[in-house]
Simulated assay, not measured.
Amino acid sequence: MEINNQNTATSASQLPPPPFAVTGISLRDNQVVTNEDLKPIADSSSVETLRLNNIANISGECLANFSNSLNLRVVDCNGSGKVGDGLHYLAACERIDDLQLWGVALSLRDVIPVAHRKYKRINLGSTKVTDDWFPYFDEVDDLEVLVLRYANVSDDGLAHFRNCNSLRNLSVGGTKLTDAGLKHFQNCLQLEGTIISETSVSDASIEILSNFKNLKRMEIENTKITPAGVEKLRQALPQCDITWDGGTIKPSKP
């Protein structure tokens, strides 16, 4: 647990003298914890960060314990596949700006209660998200991280994010992305990392990619980008780590 946004406690003996506020909960990779174990911290209104990732034994019901955590900003349930049907318990938590749901079993009905938020980070990778979900996420212009890897989304759906010019990380590998779809992100000049591997992106996008001068990491393996295109990227982005079918090109020394 995080206490008063500062100290971390892993047992009751480490708790400070009252009064204190539990501001963060992290049970990452805990394969013992269950829904019942979370009941003692039910309605902790001070919780701002909730990390319940990669936990096999919890379901959506566990989120009922945080329905009154109105200060909640971070919800990280990556890898906890059964929590999706409990997102409606967080409907009143309007300050959430970081939603991490990689690999979670989801339906559109599950996400609608938490879609209308001013998000900075969204991870719906390896879920059943489709293009028609995106209009419900109607306040994403300040988005900094977007992860949709291995999701069944296309250029049409990705157009919803065309005004997200503050993006720093974009992961859309393993989607139906084409050169036309990548154009939606051409003004994202603050990008530092992108994954477009396993898509139909080709040499036609070299100019767009070359304009991302802040890129530090790029994954483009299993695309239609040719060795000649990769060489152009290497020259245009000498400080970028580029992973492609031929291996990894490390940044050149300053």
Rank of each mutant, 00 (worst) to 15 (best):
L146M: 11
I122M: 12
S166L: 13
W102C: 04
L99W: 02
C164T: 12
S166A: 12
N165C: 14
L170Q: 07
G157I: 08
E139Q: 14
P113C: 11
N123G: 02
D98R: 15
Y89M: 05
L90P: 01
C164P: 07
I96H: 04
R121S: 15
L101R: 05
D110W: 13
V114W: 10
W102P: 01
Y136S: 08
L170V: 12
A159H: 04
D155R: 07
K118N: 10
T130M: 06
K118V: 02
Q100D: 01
T127R: 07
C93A: 13
K128L: 14
D156I: 11
K118S: 06
H88W: 12
D155S: 11
D132E: 12
V140T: 15
W133Q: 09
D155Q: 11
W133I: 05
F137M: 05
V104L: 00
D155Y: 11
V129M: 06
C164E: 07
D141H: 05
D142Q: 14
S126A: 14
L90W: 12
D138A: 03
C93M: 09
R168E: 13
S126G: 01
P113A: 10
A151C: 15
V114T: 03
F161H: 10
R168G: 14
F161V: 08
H116Q: 14
N152C: 09
Q100V: 00
V147T: 08
Y150H: 13
V114N: 12
A92M: 10
S154H: 12
L101H: 04
L106S: 09
V129N: 01
C93D: 10
Y119N: 13
D156F: 01
K118C: 03
R149E: 14
R162M: 05
I122R: 06
I96K: 02
N169P: 00
L170P: 07
R117G: 04
A115I: 00
I122Q: 09
K120G: 14
L90E: 05
A115N: 03
Y89V: 02
Y136F: 12
A91K: 15
V111I: 15
L170R: 05
D156E: 14
D142Y: 03
L167I: 12
S154T: 15
P113G: 03
H160M: 07
V153Y: 04
L146T: 10
A159I: 01
L158I: 13
D97Y: 08
E94C: 07
G103T: 02
R121F: 10
H88Q: 10
T130P: 06
D141N: 08
W133P: 04
V111N: 07
R117S: 06
E94F: 02
